[in-house]
Design a protein around this nucleic acid. Sequence first.
DNA 1: TTGAAAGCGCTAACAG
DNA 2: CTGTTAGCGCTTTCAA
Lengths: 326, 326
Amino acid sequence: MADVARRAGVAAITVSRALSRPSQLSAPTLARIQRAIAETGYVRHALAGSLASNATRCIGAVVPVLSNSIFADTLQGLSQVLEEQGYRLLIASSQYDPLREQRIVEAFVGQRVDGIALTGTTHAGNTRAMLTRSRIPVVQMWNLPTQPFDCAVGFSNFAAARAMVRHLCSRGYRRIAYIGGLTYKNDRTQARERGYRAALSEAGLPVKEAHVRRTPFEFENGAAALSDLLEADSSIDAVFAASDVLAVGALLHCLRRGWRVPDKVALAGLDGSPIGALITPELTSIRFPRRQIGVRAAELLLDRIRGRPAGVVEDLGFELLTGGSA
Amino acid sequence: MADVARRAGVAAITVSRALSRPSQLSAPTLARIQRAIAETGYVRHALAGSLASNATRCIGAVVPVLSNSIFADTLQGLSQVLEEQGYRLLIASSQYDPLREQRIVEAFVGQRVDGIALTGTTHAGNTRAMLTRSRIPVVQMWNLPTQPFDCAVGFSNFAAARAMVRHLCSRGYRRIAYIGGLTYKNDRTQARERGYRAALSEAGLPVKEAHVRRTPFEFENGAAALSDLLEADSSIDAVFAASDVLAVGALLHCLRRGWRVPDKVALAGLDGSPIGALITPELTSIRFPRRQIGVRAAELLLDRIRGRPAGVVEDLGFELLTGGSA
DNA sequence: TTGAAAGCGCTAACAG
DNA sequence: CTGTTAGCGCTTTCAA
C-alpha cells in the first residue's frame, strides 16, 4: 500500500480510502491511485485491514454435507444476499458431527467472522457458550429451535413429516413404514421421525419398531431399506421416507424389480427434490423454500450486525406435492 | 491473550507458544495457561496471528457450483487431507462465471491463503497474472491444461468423451446425437464436445450440428433436449450426454414416455454418478476418481507450500461403465 | 524454558 | 479532500 501511495504521490490512508470509499476522493486523485494499483498489481491485505477495522465482512456457514444438493440452494441464497451487501461467505461441512461443527465454529470465531449460519438446532456442548461469549450474531437454519441461540429461520420438520403421514392415512394406507436418516444428533431427521410417530398415533395406528429403518442419506440405502422392510413384512402398504434421497432410491428399486408403485407399495418422500418430479410415477413429497431459508438467514444476520435485537424465529412453512407414487 | 497471560502469570508470548508449540513449554506452565484459557473462553485471534506470522494455514478452493454433487467428492478429498495437515479449506462457487472466479481468487489472494485450488483450465484474463504475482501455489483440477498455471490433477475430458462415443460406435450405433453443457468458458464440457466430434470423425460418421444440443446441467434440461432431438430427427439411434445429470434426465424422460431404452434410443452419460447405477436400465457412463482428484490436489499444494517446484500435471484416468442403457 | 521489543499491513480518529 | 499518528493482536527475533 505504501508502494502504491508513493507512485500516486499520496499518503497510504488515501489509498485505503480509494479502496473502501472511493466517492470520498477527488476524481484526479482517485484516477492516479487506480493507475498505480493497476501498474503494481496490488491486492489489499484483507487480514491487516480486518485487524485494524475490527470487521471482516465475512460470514461463516456450516452445513452437514455438500454432497446432498438440498443444502446447495440454501447456500446459494445466503451467498447471493451477502454478496450484494459486500460480504463474503465461508462454507464448511460438519459431516453430521457436532464436534466437527464445534471446531469449525471455533475457527470462524478465531477468524472473527461477522456472523455465523448453522444448520439445525443440535450442537456440541461448548458451541453455544463459545458463540455467546464471542457475541457474534448467529442464525440457525432448517429447523425451528425452542431455545434459539440468537435467531433462526426454517420450518417445522415435525409438522412436515406429520402432514405427509396424515396425507398417506387419508389416502387409505394403514401399514405405513418409515425410512429415515440416522437420528444420532440430527435434529431434522429426529423431528421427522417424531412427526411420523405422532401422525400414526393420532390416526389410531400402531407404531411398529420393525417398520422403522434408519440409514445414511444415499440413494442405494433407500433401496436397501425398502427391500428389507418388504422382505420382513410384505403387508406394508406405504413407506414414508424422511428424505427424497432415500425415497428416490426406494422408488428406483421398485422400478428395477418391476414392482408397480403405488400398487405394490406407496412411496412418499420429503424435500421436494427436482428429480422426484421427473421419475415415473412422480414422487409424492413436501417442498419447502430451500433457497429462501438462505436468503432470510442472510438478511437476519445482516440485521443483527446492524444492531437489531436477537430472538427472531421465522417459520417459512412447507407445501405438499402430490405425485403418483402415493 | 494478554488477559490469559496475566491470569497464568506469564508473558503473552508464552501463551502464544502454548497454542502453537506446546511441547516447548514446561508442563506446569502449560497447565496454568490451559486452565486460564478454559476459564476465560479465550479464542486466539487468527487474523492477527496470520498477519504476524505471514501464514494463514488456509487453502481456497473454487468449484463451479455446489448444487451438482459431482464436485462434492473432490472437495471432500481436499478437505480431509488438508485437515489432517492442520490446514483449513475455504470453499467458494463461481457459477461457471470466470469473472466471478476472478473476484473469488482476488479475495483469496487478499486473505493471503497459502494455496488455491481451481476447477478447470479456463480463467478470466487477469486471473493468471494475479496468481503469478501473488506467488501463491495453485492447482488446477478436473481437466489437464496444456499450460498449467502451476500444477494440475485430473483426467482428459476429451479422451473420456471420445472413448464413450467410440464405445457407442462399436456397439453399432451410427446416428449419435450429443447433449452437453453450455460451452461458454467451460473447458470440461468443451473438451467433451470435442471428444464427441473427434470420435465421430474418426469413425467416418458425419457431425450434424442439428444433433448437438447445449444446455445447463439440470435433470429437466436433459429431458427437454432429448425430446427436442428426437422430435427433430427420429432416426437418431443413440445420444451421448456429456454429463450424467443430463443423461439421467434424458433417461427418465424416456421411461416417462414409455420408450424402451436402448431400443428406442440408446443413452450414455459421463461422470459415473451413483444414481446412474440405480436406474433401470443402468446408465452407461464413465467413472473417474472424483475424490482422488481432491486428495492429490491437496497433496500437490502441500508439496508446493513446502518448497517443491511447480509443473506437475497428473492424469488420474477414467473407466468405462457399461450399463444396459446402451 | 521464558521474556522484551519490534513490527506484520492496514484503518480509526482526529486534524487541517 | 487529504494527511498524521497511533494502534489492531499477534509472532518473530534476539536475549537471558
